[in-house]
Each structure stands twice: as C-alpha cells, then as structure tokens.
Simulated scan of single mutants.
Amino acid sequence: MGLYRKYKPHMLLVVNQLCYTFLYFMTEAAFNLGMNPHVYVTYRALVAGIVMLPFAYFLERDVRPKLTITLFLEIFMLSLLGVSLSLNVHFDSLKYSSPTFLTAMTNTTPSLTFIFAVALRLEVLNRRDPRSIAKVLGTMVSLGGVITMTTYKGPIIRNLWHPLIQIQRNSPVHENWLKASLLTVSSCIIWATYNIMQALTLKRYHAELSLTVWMSFVGAAQSAIYTVIVAHKPSDWIIGFNIEFWSTIYSGVVTSGVVVFFQLWCTKQKGPVFITIFNPLCTVLVAMLAYFVFGEKLYLGRIIGAVIVIIGLYLLLWGKEGDNEVHNKAKKQSQCNCEHPESRI
C-alpha cells in the first residue's frame, strides 16, 4: 500500500496517456467523415459535465466550497483556457497534420509550463544546483526539438506492409505543416497557462470533481457560442450513429471527464509541471499505432525532433524530482518539530 500511494499519481497519468492515444485516432476518423471539430469540442464538454455531475453532487456535498462571483470568474477563465479555447485550437490543427505530429508537438507543454512557473515564482531556480541547471537545459533542449520538427521534414519512412486498419476519408487531407505548427504551439501555450492557473485555483476550490463539472459546462457554453459564430451550417450539429457519435461519447466520458479529474487530483498532489511529463508516452504509442496499424506516413525529421523533445523532458523530470525530495524533507522536518516542540527552543 505504501508503494501504491507513492506511485498512484504515476499510474493515473499513464492511464491518461493511454486514453489520449485512442482519442487521437477516433477523432481523426470522425473529422475525416466530415464532423466539425468545434461541434465535437462542444458535445464532448457537454457529455463530460452530464456524466460527472451525479458523482460531484453526492461525493463532494460536504467539501465543496461556496461559489462566489470571484471564484466563478476564475472558473470561467479556467474553462476558457482548459476546455473551449485550447481544445478548439488543438483539434483544428488536426485537419492540417497527423496524430503523430500533433502529439509530438504537445510535448512542449511541460517546457512552457516550467517557463511560466518560473516567471510567476512557482518554481525555484538555483544556479549552483545541478537539478536546477537540468531543468533549464531540459527546457532549452525540448524547444530545440520543436524547432527541428517544424523546420525539417526529412524523407518519408516507407511502410513495410499494408495497414491493418484503414481510416475512411470522405475528403482529402490538406497537410500544411506551418499552419499546423502555429495552431499546435498556440494550444500548448494556452494549456501551459491553464496548468499554472488550475494549480492556483485548486488551493481555493479543493473539490476536483465539482471543478471538473463546472469547467465542462462552462466550457461547453463557451465553445457553443464560438461554434455558432464560426460554423453557420445547422447541419454541422447533426451527427450520425457512427464513429462521430462514439468518439464524442468516448472523449466526453473518458478524456474530458475521468482524465480531467485524474489530472486535477495529480496536480493537487504533485504540482502543475509533473502532470505534463508523461506526454512522451502518448507520442510513442501514437507513432507506433500510426505506422504499424494505420499505415500513416512518418517523416524522419519529425522522429528526430520528437526524440530531442523527449530527452529534454526527462532532463526536466530529473530536475523536478529534486524539488520533490526537498519538499518531502521539509515536510518531515516540520512534522518532527510539531511532535517535539522542545526541539524548537
């Protein structure tokens, strides 16, 4: 049980990445059938709110803080950053790229989160500490990997056999790496801001399930307004009982419901930077499925850039583990002082 409690955040975040891996291919298939990405984001958030509402209402009835106007405005901004704006930009970029490229670029979120955390003094840097140097170096290496992915495409790695699963495409894919890069980096910047803000919000609103429900409903309303402005066709809101429907249900229940709750809990336990360090696992899984199962094109430059990003991320992880050790030592010392007050005299 001691090991379980120690590694529970790690296990939950691994499950999150597995959930995200299947999500990318389901949404790609839905978009290829003609589903509007903005309608998808709206339905996804709405489904998540409906599914999580009963659990939040009954399980957190006694611990849910009172909702004030200030706190609601904070939740409104959190929903904008974490649900409506970030997801709309993120999935919009899938129209111009592939799941492999998208997940690889998403690995920049930890580096951007770290930069914002340092700027807001949520992260401490010591020039003489090797772990602090590793955090800075890891951030620079990760950003270098992103530059490699966006500037160097390289030759195509050919498939050795026919794909096991063929994704149906009603319309041709318009690859535009520059547009895809700009959209994906924008979504990563928004997500990094969201990671910082949610860590601050959880200190005042310490009910993860209820916060997930609020974010889902508010984010769905924001995304619906944006969709009405952008998509003028009423037919875009009608989805068939096919992959469009099942991808919406899966994303709403699993990724916008359960996964967001896991992320909030892990953020409360480990901090905003820790939850982003498992992103490379999703990149590896997506690349393997894309190449070996779905037969999608892989470019040498994207693989080299992704490897560089992952190296930088784990340099950052090594530096973060040093922070956890310092925090645990300080916590134990504080507990000892409370148990033996005479030691402070």
Rank of each mutant, 00 (worst) to 15 (best):
Lys153Trp: 03
Ser256His: 08
Gln222Lys: 09
Ile239His: 11
Leu211Cys: 09
Arg158Leu: 03
Gly252Asp: 06
Val254Gly: 02
Pro234Tyr: 02
Trp246Leu: 09
Val173Phe: 14
Ile238Ser: 08
Phe241Pro: 03
Val185His: 05
Gly154Trp: 01
Ser223Pro: 02
Ser181Ala: 13
Ala180Val: 10
Arg158Gln: 14
Val254Asn: 01
Leu200Trp: 02
Thr151Lys: 12
Ile196Val: 12
Tyr226Gln: 03
Ser235Val: 09
Asn176Pro: 14
Glu244Asp: 13
Leu182Thr: 08
Asn195Ile: 00
Ile239Met: 11
Ser223Gln: 09
Ser171Ala: 15
Gln166Arg: 13
Ile190Gly: 02
Val253Asp: 03
Val254Thr: 12
Pro234Cys: 06
Met197Arg: 06
Gly240Glu: 08
Leu209Ile: 07
Ser171Trp: 13
Trp177Arg: 15
Gln198Cys: 02
Tyr250Cys: 06
Ser187Asn: 11
Leu202Tyr: 07
Met215Trp: 04
His232Ile: 03
Asn170Lys: 15
Val185Pro: 01
Gly252Val: 07
Gln168Lys: 15
Gln222Ser: 07
Ala220Glu: 01
Leu200His: 03
Val218Ser: 09
Ala231Ser: 09
Cys188Arg: 00
Arg158Pro: 06
Tyr226Lys: 05
His232Cys: 00
Ile165Val: 14
Gly154Asp: 01
His174Met: 10
Gly219Pro: 02
Phe245Thr: 13
Ile238Glu: 02
Thr255Phe: 05
Ala221Ser: 11
Thr212Asn: 13
Thr212Ile: 07
Val254Cys: 03
Lys233His: 12
Trp177Ser: 05
Leu202Asn: 07
Lys233Gly: 10
Ile157Glu: 09
Ala207Phe: 07
Val185Met: 09
Tyr250Ser: 08
Met215Asp: 08
Lys153Cys: 04
Leu178Lys: 12
Trp191Pro: 00
Thr184Cys: 11
Gly240Met: 00
Tyr226Glu: 03
Met215Glu: 14
Ser181Arg: 11
His206Leu: 04
Ile190Cys: 12
Ala220Asn: 05
Ser235Ala: 13
Cys188Asn: 09
Thr248Leu: 06
Ala207Gly: 06
Leu202Arg: 11
Val185Tyr: 04
Asn170Leu: 15
Trp177Ile: 11
Val254Asp: 02
Tyr250Thr: 05
Asp236Thr: 03
Ala221Ile: 14
Trp177Ala: 06
Pro155Met: 01
Leu164Val: 07
Gln198Ile: 01
Trp214Ile: 03
Ala180Gln: 07
Leu164Asp: 03
Val218Phe: 08
Leu183Gly: 09
Gln222Val: 08
